[in-house]
């Protein structure tokens, strides 16, 4: 991806729509890749009951942008994001994330890698209902072994940044859906990960709140040395993407960049 594509929503960038055949788009490979997959596949089960969730994915996702994985239910988006985030093992192919070949990591190494390198934003937030907003946001720092007071201070600063500085002591049940997602975003960013994966971050929110959340994620993506990967089927937020990978039946069928992503087209 070129540098112009990293500032979004992109309104004047050139439209580049390129169906994927065998190799990824060359423009993406010219910049520093956050994620690089080659012939990546994932099979659940074996023999007759085997389910081929990913069928030879070739994909490059650059640092410093917001990329989206889109497609119908069951197309493999969630499986792909799980493999990219190091919480599922691939069956075959190559997958290099942030310079790390995921196939070379043992399970404990993957756990540590996720702890240090990945931030998660979940569709249903996954906030601990008995922890306050600031305590929820501090969890990644606590996992890293940061002292409690320091972790809470860091979490408070991050919540302040996402506009929730006044709700530090609120429990998730006392927050609106949008506010809960902001807490989840603060939690995903508090330990400065270089990869942030977001699973349907707007599907549990109304349109306006969803737009606000995407603006926030867009801001995060603009900061540079970090990759945001968003799984979504909500076409109303495509405009925030620098790159959209269209998936179907376990394959990446098309990659779009810039403002082209917002166009309905053949998606």
């Amino acid at each position: 991806m070129n540098s112009a594509a990293t500032s979004a929503p992109v309104t004047s960038a050139p439209i580049t729509s390129a169906p994927i055949t065998s190799a990824p788009t060359t423009s993406a490979t010219k910049t520093l890749s956050a994620i690089s997959c080659r012939r990546l596949s994932k099979v659940y089960g074996a023999s007759e009951t085997a389910v081929h969730a990913l069928r030879g994915i070739d994909l490059d996702i650059p640092l410093g942008g917001l990329s989206m994985l889109v497609g119908p239910s069951g197309c493999g988006k969630t499986t792909l994001i799980s493999v990219l985030a190091g919480i599922l093992d691939k069956t075959a192919g190559d997958c290099v994330v942030l310079g790390q070949d995921m196939g070379n990591l043992s399970a404990p190494q993957k756990t540590r890698w996720r702890r240090d390198q990945v931030g998660f934003v979940f569709q249903s937030f996954h906030l601990m209902p008995t922890l306050t907003a600031v305590e929820n946001a501090a969890i990644p720092l606590l996992i890293q072994g940061v002292g409690r007071s320091k972790a809470l201070a860091g979490a408070a600063a991050m919540l302040n940044r996402v506009g929730l500085g006044h709700r530090l002591s609120s429990l998730p049940g006392e927050l609106s859906g949008g506010q809960q997602q902001r807490v989840a975003i603060a939690r995903a960013l508090v330990h400065s990960p270089r990869l942030v994966v977001c699973d349907e971050p707007t599907s549990a929110l109304d349109h306006e709140t969803g737009q606000q959340i995407m603006l926030l994620l867009r801001e995060v993506a603009n900061e540079g040395d970090r990759a945001l990967v968003v799984v979504t089927h909500d076409s109303r937020i495509f405009e925030y993407a620098d790159l959209i990978a269209q998936m179907d039946d376990g394959r990446v069928t098309e990659i779009r960049q810039g403002i082209a992503a917002a166009a309905p087209g053949p998606l």
Binding site: P108, T111, R112, W113, D116, F122, H126, P140, I143
Partner: peptide
Amino acid sequence: LRHYGALKAMGVS
């Protein structure tokens, strides 16, 4: 359990 799942995903051993 779902919270433990989230913690596992976030890197808790």
